[in-house]
């Protein structure tokens, strides 16, 4: 077990190392002399030289990478080329917002997905089931940015139920979180539905029923208990999709999280921020996957670790 954990953590380090090289190269491959890009069309050669020196852009790629990595490992992510402020500060201002958005989205989608899944699973073949299936199939086919636009159009503009721009209140968070969670809700609902259908066929359900237990109790006892780990896996696997979705959702709602910062840093060619954002986002994906795997290993000690 310890060996397995060590092996997995080691794998993560290698992956993150490769990721950091990717990220670093991505930024260097962007066409244009970075200093000139930062300063704009009217920059004088003197200013360009200053900036080139200041950001160490005259050094070799290897040296630049080492300096950057050293900084990153020491918690110094460099300064944003757009605002001159430390990237850490810029990201810190927005990180919490995206986490909040994602947490709201995960919470509602898991709860709603579970309810819809059980509802349609226990009534398989009836109209309730078809409604549930339709909702979950649609949830995976509707682009989140379009869903967001439609939600704004109907709920904010026509019905005035929510503020147009998320204003930090809970009411303002409802629509962005709803939009962002729609896809995950569908995934959870589909999973729960199939678990319920399967469980209802199993022997223990029949036995339990024979014993006079209510079907509802059986489902709650067995299905829900057994679903915790798979649902966590789904969350882990879908987190990447959700982070991508956050870029779109934040753009639609003008919600200033790291997704919007990512778009801004591309728009204003703020490469220090861009590379740090991509690194952080991929680190989250890798770390969460590791956590899920470890959790799996702890819960199911019988799986083979090879």
């Amino acid at each position: 077990m310890t060996k397995y954990i060590l092996k997995r953590v080691g794998g993560i380090i290698v992956t993150m190392f490769l990721v950091s090289i990717f990220v670093f190269m991505i930024i260097r491959l962007i066409p244009g002399e970075p200093a000139r890009l930062m300063l704009g069309d009217k920059a004088t050669p003197e200013m360009i030289e200053t900036i080139t020196k200041q950001y160490g852009l005259d050094k070799s790629y290897f040296e630049q990478y080492m300096i950057w990595m050293k900084g990153v490992l020491h918690g110094d992510f460099g300064n944003s080329q757009r605002t001159g402020m430390p990237v850490m500060y810029e990201i810190g201002l927005r990180y919490g917002k995206t986490v909040r958005l994602a947490l709201y989205a995960i919470t509602w989608s898991v709860i709603a997905g579970t309810i819809i899944g059980i509802w349609s699973g226990t009534r398989a073949g009836k109209w309730q089931d078809y409604t549930g299936i339709t909702v979950s199939v649609l949830g995976q086919a509707v682009p989140d940015f379009w869903l967001g636009m439609m939600a704004i159009m109907i709920l904010c503009v026509k019905l005035h139920l929510f503020p147009i721009i998320p204003d930090g209140t809970f009411r303002g968070m409802v629509l962005p979180a709803f939009t962002l969670g729609a896809y995950m809700m569908s995934t959870v609902a589909r999973f729960m539905r199939s678990s319920v259908i399967e469980a209802l066929k199993e022997d223990y359900t029949r036995t339990a029923r024979a014993k006079g237990l209510k079907e509802r109790t059986v489902i709650y006892k067995h299905v829900l208990r057994n679903s915790v780990i798979p649902v966590i896996t789904i969350i882990g696997m879908q987190l990447g999709v959700m982070l991508g979705g956050a870029v779109l959702v934040e753009s639609v709602f003008g919600y200033s999280g790291i997704g919007l910062l990512l778009l801004d840093s591309i728009k204003y060619r703020d490469y220090t921020t861009l590379q740090m954002l991509i690194l952080i986002i991929s680190f989250h994906v890798v770390a969460i996957n590791l956590l899920v795997d470890l959790l799996y290993a702890v819960v199911n000690p019988e799986i083979r670790y090879d």
Binding site: T15, V19, I266, S282, V285
Partner: peptide, 18 residues
């Protein structure tokens, strides 16, 4: 694995940025 560590859309955005 390393490529997989980037969420699809974000990798696409990064590539388009280049």
């Amino acid at each position: 694995d390393a490529v997989y560590a980037f969420p699809g859309l974000i990798l696409a955005i990064a590539i388009v940025a280049i």
